[in-house]
Nucleic acid binder design. Structure first.
Lengths: 345, 345
DNA sequence: TTCGCCAACCAAAGCGCTTTGGAACGGGAG
DNA sequence: CTCCCGTTCCAAAGCGCTTTGGTTGGCGAA
């Protein structure tokens, strides 16, 4: 059943049917009701491709998910991020187009996406400190919103980010207040902007309180359980045994906890852990009482915000070039059972 | 730059340019070369929407991701599954269209997808034992492949599934051989087909060896770390303390491990754990030496297989209705450090 | 010389929708 | 009674591609 068939059934022209269904004023209310009723009865749904071709709008948002070729890892936060963004798209009638791409092919894919015109805008995931995709998209004139920021990018762009610096600053201060001095940082890959900022917050807090940072107590890599375990094992075997760990991910924190178990150390008494918690649906930090003391910021919520921002930009963009805007989310520190005073304090 | 412009530049008709670019034989090789060269120079890319409208093929595959409304959980395996499927789509020029839907809206969404004609087929995720979506899609005539199976579905359909029964049968036997008799099962939600089958394998193995199944040692629910922890704590506090756990997910296994730690029990000596491992990229079961003894089956690989199967069906479907086929994947049991003889054996 | 055939190209008709630019009709103002 | 305007509808021209059903010109066979 297409528009023409439906029009024939109603003894109306396709024009009128189209207008009736799309809420144009120049059709009488009684006709509109008739049309809507028939559309429902015949289960008519306009052909997406035709609509898109005619309007020139793709009604779809692109998510280009990079897959790191060394590690073959899909970032575990994507599922939740996309769940959040997807909610918003669904409400506005947009589709979500996903493309999984090896890191080095990203440029090509963005160009292709642009010239094939099958999305109206896109979300940039996992920006690095120096992020070539931002310049590229600006040049291509494709609306976009970055989930995160790119420190070395000077031009304007829209983004949604959490306050990584402040979160890790606060977490570090919290440990120092508990008497910890040898604090280890188990971070993500530090070319990634978020990891860079987290380290900054960590170092600034140490410096502000006159605590010497120890390079031997700073690790960075893919944030997995195994990473947490191995780094913790190595650090705890070293001469400058840390009394506390700050980790960038719940998974890493779980690895550190396993290492403590293996070494017979008690969490929260012998060694403390503070982690960042992305509040993933399948990886909750406990129920009522959090397991780990953590800075928490919902990735799903970030997904929703990115989507809303992008749709707004696209909407506005029809009239004029919209002003880039940023949204900075705070991550409160939530005290759980994994922290306590430094031993011997 | 569209087809017509390009044709004008070349002093050719759009027909010829289209045929040249799409590899039709009725255009001379010298002309084809000229066209291809110009296309490259002008960075011409056919408009996706127009192409789709003209050919009637959406060149996209739909993934409808249900989101359980009680638990608000996004299944953590989706990311890897989609990474696998996405690889295959990319190679064949298909897009991946994702829709996140609350459980109860699925019917509506499939119908909508169908009548909007914006995908050529779709993947059915997380089938239940009784799976209405299969009948629905068959009725709608939309090609589909199920990731998993639906025990109570009698009609034919295409699927890719792992041998859940055999995997859990084998894992259970392995524990029995080690002398364990009080074995706990921490399973997914058992209306889900995979969880049902896993339980079947477990019970069959117990029965075959004359071990009485204890309902108090069988739990089912969302497979999270917290689930593993709480169920294990409860069971270990009970009268019929298990000496071994069989879990459906690495996350649950990690929760069980935490419980053991809290109770001062040693993993692999006091209590054994066997888990199923989906081989997720961000949740590896250790590196060289696996942490947990586990049945392993790569979800990413399953994604690839589903995608290939679906594309093949779509390709064939142009000629005739293709025969449904199934692919059963075995999950080898990989011995790690989490299992040992039952205490006192 | 005529005819048929093949290689190489093209005009025009879709695909199913939106949108432009009317047309038809009725009612109120003059 | 005429004129004008607002309301309500419609025909037809796109959107950018594919595909059908040609046409044209050259060459070999009869």
């Amino acid at each position: 059943m297409n528009l023409k068939d439906l029009a024939d059934q109603l003894n109306l022209s396709p024009t009128t049917v189209s207008r009736a269904l799309n809420g144009y004023p120049e059709v009488s209310e009684v006709t509109r009701a008739r049309v809507e009723d028939a559309a429902r009865r015949y289960n008519y749904r306009p052909n997406t491709q035709a609509k898109r071709l005619a309007t020139g709008r793709a009604m779809a948002i692109g998510h280009v998910i990079p897959i790191s070729t060394q590690h073959e890892i899909v970032n575990p936060v994507f599922a939740d991020f996309i769940a959040g963004a997807g909610e918003v798209y669904a409400r506005s009638g947009y589709d979500l187009l996903m493309t999984i791409v090896p890191d080095e092919d990203q440029d090509r894919i963005y160009r292709e996406i642009r010239s094939k015109r099958n999305v109206d805008g896109c979300i940039v995931h996992s920006p690095k400190m120096a992020e070539p995709r931002i310049g590229l998209l600006r040049e291509l004139g494709l609306p976009f919103v970055v989930h995160g920021r790119a420190t070395l990018e000077t031009g304007p762009y829209s983004w949604v980010d959490m306050n990584n610096i402040r979160a890790f600053h606060r977490a570090t201060e919290f440990l120092i207040d508990l008497g910890h001095r040898r604090i280890a940082l188990i971070n993500g890959i530090e070319t990634m902007d978020f990891a860079h900022r987290r380290r900054l917050g960590f170092e600034q807090a140490l410096a502000a309180r006159g605590v010497q940072a120890d390079p031997g107590l700073m690790a960075s890599g893919e944030m997995t359980e195994a990473q947490g375990y191995h780094e913790a094992m190595a650090m705890l075997a070293g001469p400058q045994r840390p009394t506390a760990f700050l980790t960038s991910s719940l998974l890493s924190a779980m690895g550190v906890r396993r290492a403590l178990g293996d070494l017979g150390l008690v969490l929260g008494r012998d060694v403390s852990i503070v982690t960042h918690d992305d509040d993933l649906s399948y990886l909750r930090n406990g129920g009522d009482e959090p397991i780990f003391t953590a800075t928490r910021s919902s990735v799903r919520d970030a997904g929703r915000r990115c989507a809303r921002l992008l749709l707004r930009q696209i909407e506005l963009g029809k009239a004029a070039v919209p002003k880039p805007v940023g949204e900075l989310l705070e991550a409160p520190l939530i005290v759980g059972a994994s922290t306590g005073p430094a031993p011997g304090v």
